[in-house]
């Protein structure tokens, strides 16, 4: 049942459009970048992570769109009357967005690795952890977007979320001299970061933060359980605490 619902959502939901947009935007940024990866896989991972400044908001916006679609389409009553638990429906809807995002990330990384001959240091621990953090960031974006969409059902919510996330990423990004510590909250790593700087410790903190954010997003999107509203934020708070503990100076 879950597989069939997921297949329907992947085919008819915003997932195909998201994958196309990510391939277009991410592909243009990563594959079209001058210099490429100089044969080093860690550089390929870094290039892809840096494309997160546009990819992350796209996935989040797709989540917002999907999260509000049932109410926007006046389907919420029929869905509420169905027995499938809200947490499972949210897992399927967010899962479809996440699958599209993660699959595109993997395809782009593979394409960059093959076309750029970025095989030196292939699957080494440090870049592999950085890649995993990138994947979890997309998962977090999908479920956070889904949760936002449940509360903001206007069709403008998705484009507004896209613009707002882009703006926040730029402000936090340090491109204009801002703090790079704040960038640890986002998948993008900033232009000046080298693979050596992106340590396993940093990636582990980011992995925990993004995983916590994804779980909180999923709980919020499921509105489950209603009487423990604030506890839904506990996973994100725990992830943030882990990020801060592993990287003193981050997230603040």
């Amino acid at each position: 049942m879950t597989a069939r619902l997921l297949a329907l959502d992947l085919r008819r939901g915003p997932a195909p459009l998201l994958a196309l947009a990510m391939l277009g935007l991410g592909g243009a940024l990563v594959l079209g970048a001058p210099g490429g990866c100089d044969g080093r896989w860690p550089d390929a991972v870094l290039a892809l992570r840096d494309a997160g400044w546009i990819v992350f908001p796209c996935v989040l916006a797709a989540g917002v769109w999907r999260g509000g679609s049932a109410r926007r389409r006046q389907l919420d009553d029929a869905i509420t009357a169905s027995p499938l638990p809200a947490w499972r429906r949210s897992a399927i809807e967010g899962g479809a967005i996440a699958i599209a995002g993660v699959a595109t990330f993997v395809v782009l990384l593979a394409a960059l690795t093959v076309t750029g001959g970025c095989t030196s240091g292939l699957l080494a621990g440090r870049p592999a952890a950085a890649a995993l953090a990138g994947v979890l960031a997309l998962l977090a974006a999908a479920f956070t977007g889904l949760a936002l969409g449940r509360f903001a059902v206007t069709p403008m919510a998705a484009p507004l979320a896209l613009l707002a996330t882009l703006a926040v990423t730029f402000v936090a990004g340090g491109w204009s001299g801002g703090s790079t510590d704040a960038m640890l909250l986002f998948p993008a790593v900033g232009e000046d970061v080298t693979p050596r700087q992106l340590t396993v410790r940093i990636s582990a903190g980011q992995i925990l933060w993004f995983a916590g954010l994804a779980v909180s997003g999923w709980l919020l999107a499921s509105r489950f359980p209603a009487r423990f509203r604030l506890t839904r934020l506990v996973p994100a708070a725990a992830g943030l605490a882990a990020l801060a503990a592993l990287n003193p100076g981050a997230a603040g």
């Binding site: 008819r12 389409r73 389907l75 009553d77 029929a78 009357a81 169905s82 499938l84």
Partner: peptide, 26 residues
């Protein structure tokens, strides 16, 4: 249940849409 304001996802076919709700009904 057929609600008074019954919405739909326009990209689904009629078969897919009824199937979607059948899955939701477990």
């Amino acid at each position: 249940y057929l609600p008074q304001n019954f919405g739909f996802y326009p990209r689904y076919t009629a078969r897919e849409f009824v199937e979607y709700l059948a899955w939701l009904k477990e």
